[in-house]
Amino acid sequence: METSRRAPIGRPRGFDTDQALEEAMRIFWEQGYEGASLTDLTAAMGITRTSMYAAFGNKEDLFRKALERYTQGPASYGARALQERTARQVATAFLHGSVRATTRPGCPSGCLGVQGSLAAGDPGSAARDTLVAWRNEHASRLRDRFRRAVDEGDLPPDADPELLARYLMTVSNGIAVQAASGSTREDLQQVADMALRSWPPVTGPAPHTG
Score class of each variant (00 low, 15 high):
E2P: 15
T3H: 11
T3W: 07
P8T: 12
P8V: 14
R11W: 09
R11D: 11
G14F: 09
F15P: 03
F15N: 03
F15H: 07
T17Y: 07
T17I: 12
D18L: 12
Q19P: 01
A20G: 02
E22K: 09
A24S: 08
A24D: 04
R26H: 12
Q31R: 14
G32M: 05
E34M: 15
D40I: 00
A44L: 07
M45G: 03
T48D: 09
R49I: 03
T50S: 14
S51N: 08
G57A: 14
E60C: 00
F63M: 11
K65R: 15
L67K: 06
Y70E: 13
T71A: 15
G73E: 15
G73K: 10
P74Y: 06
P74D: 14
Y77P: 00
A79S: 14
A79D: 15
A81H: 05
A81L: 04
L82G: 13
Q83I: 01
E84Y: 01
R85G: 07
R88S: 06
R88T: 02
R88H: 13
A91I: 01
A91F: 04
T92L: 05
A93N: 05
G97K: 06
S98F: 03
R100H: 13
T102C: 15
T103L: 12
T103A: 13
P105Q: 09
P105N: 11
P105T: 11
C107S: 11
P108W: 11
S109N: 12
S109M: 12
G110Q: 06
C111A: 15
C111V: 01
L112K: 06
Q115H: 15
G116E: 06
G116R: 05
G116V: 02
S117G: 08
A119N: 11
D122G: 00
D122A: 14
P123F: 10
G124S: 09
G124V: 06
S125F: 06
A127P: 01
A127H: 04
R128W: 05
D129P: 01
V132W: 08
V132R: 10
A133N: 02
W134D: 10
W134C: 04
N136V: 01
N136T: 03
E137P: 01
E137Q: 08
L142W: 02
L142N: 04
R143Q: 11
D144M: 02
R145D: 05
R147T: 11
R147W: 08
R148V: 08
A149Y: 06
E152K: 10
E152F: 06
G153K: 08
P157D: 12
D158F: 09
D158K: 06
L164V: 00
L164P: 01
M169K: 04
M169I: 11
M169D: 09
M169S: 07
T170P: 01
T170V: 08
N173T: 03
N173I: 01
G174L: 08
G174Y: 05
I175K: 04
Q178Y: 08
A179G: 07
A179S: 14
A179Q: 08
A180M: 04
S181D: 11
S181C: 04
G182V: 02
S183K: 08
E186A: 13
D187R: 09
D193G: 02
M194G: 02
M194S: 05
L196R: 03
R197D: 09
S198T: 05
S198W: 06
P200N: 07
P200Y: 12
P201D: 13
P207L: 07
P207N: 05
P207V: 01
P207K: 05
H208I: 10
H208L: 15
G210D: 11
G210I: 03
